[in-house]
């Protein structure tokens, strides 16, 4: 992956190892006889978006849930902000593939629900929720219920909920896989501006090569059986060229091809 690392104008800056927001060290996880993760280690640089990309069944969701503290690792440690985690915490927020909205609650309560669980007073949490509802473009839908919204709008609710607790690390498990293609593209653009403006660390699971290359500062390619990090790619030249130019950038196209070349053997 020569093109992805050294040949940037800021080689020196990128040579100095960036500070990690999340460190995964030697993590293994078995489900009975299934080896979901084997001795996996990975660093997630602060303020950047890292994608976990790989064929389905390679342990992406498992790794993300272990980082979230939702399931325990069999061995190894996870550090968030330098501290080893023992369970879910205020420093991480999760965005779910199937949105995980309360069907009996309206948009306002759903967005405020993370804050509700963290004990924030009603008027305060609703004020915060209102801001994020507007930020994700759902102003006017505060009183709507999830079943009245499209898939894309529901995921905006899930995103607003995760943003409103103001955690340093956002964990997104294939958040756009259940929305249609146009909405998905809009989401990807919005995600780029979020990464730029929110100064949070994003860990983003996807099985789409194009999506990973489009949105990521760093891409970890995971391969199955046993699950391992096969390579780490850091696109370098097209990030600042504007969202509309990325898909035509030669580096973008090269990386997409290269990833496909290494993954194609694992597609049955």
């Amino acid at each position: 992956m020569a093109m992805s690392q050294i040949d940037t104008p800021f080689a020196d800056a990128s040579m100095a190892a960036p500070e990690s927001a999340v460190s995964v060290r030697g993590v293994s996880k078995n489900y009975g006889a299934v080896e979901a993760l084997k001795n996996m280690s990975l660093e997630f640089p602060k303020g950047q978006l890292t994608s976990l990309l790989g064929p389905s069944g390679c342990g992406k969701t498992t790794l993300l849930k272990i980082i979230a503290g939702l399931i325990p690792a069999d061995s190894g440690t996870i550090e968030v902000g330098g501290k080893a985690i023992t369970g879910p915490g205020d420093d991480r927020a999760f965005v779910f593939q199937d949105f995980a909205l309360l069907p009996w609650a309206n948009v306002l309560r759903n967005v405020a629900f993370g804050l509700e669980l963290r004990g924030v007073a009603k008027s305060e949490r609703e004020a915060i929720a209102e801001t994020y509802i507007a930020n994700v473009g759902l102003a006017g839908f505060e009183k709507a219920f999830p079943h009245e919204l499209s898939g894309g709008m529901r995921q905006r609710v899930g995103l607003a909920r995760a943003l409103s607790v103001d955690s340093q690390v956002l964990l997104l498990d294939e958040p756009f896989s259940a929305v249609d293609e146009q909405t998905r593209r809009k989401f990807q653009e919005d995600l780029l501006s979020l990464v730029e403006n929110e100064n949070k660390t994003f860990i983003f699971v996807t099985h789409s090569i194009e999506e990973a290359v489009y949105v990521s500062d760093q891409i970890a390619i995971l391969l199955p059986r046993p699950s391992r990090v096969s390579e780490i790619i850091r696109p370098s030249s097209f990030r600042n060229k504007g969202v509309e130019n990325i898909r035509r950038d030669p580096e973008y196209l090269d990386i997409v091809d290269e990833i496909w070349a290494s993954l194609r053997n694992y597609v049955e």
């Binding site: 503290g69 939702l70 999760f94 593939q97 199937d98 009996w104 629900f113 669980l117």
Partner: peptide, 25 residues
């Protein structure tokens, strides 16, 4: 839906919270 339970836990729900705010409803 399992992910509702995961969602509540990821935002720090206590077992009592999960009971009264998720399971019951």
């Amino acid at each position: 839906n399992r992910s509702l339970v995961d969602m509540a836990r990821s935002f720090g729900a206590s077992p009592l919270d999960a009971f009264t705010k998720i399971y019951f409803w």
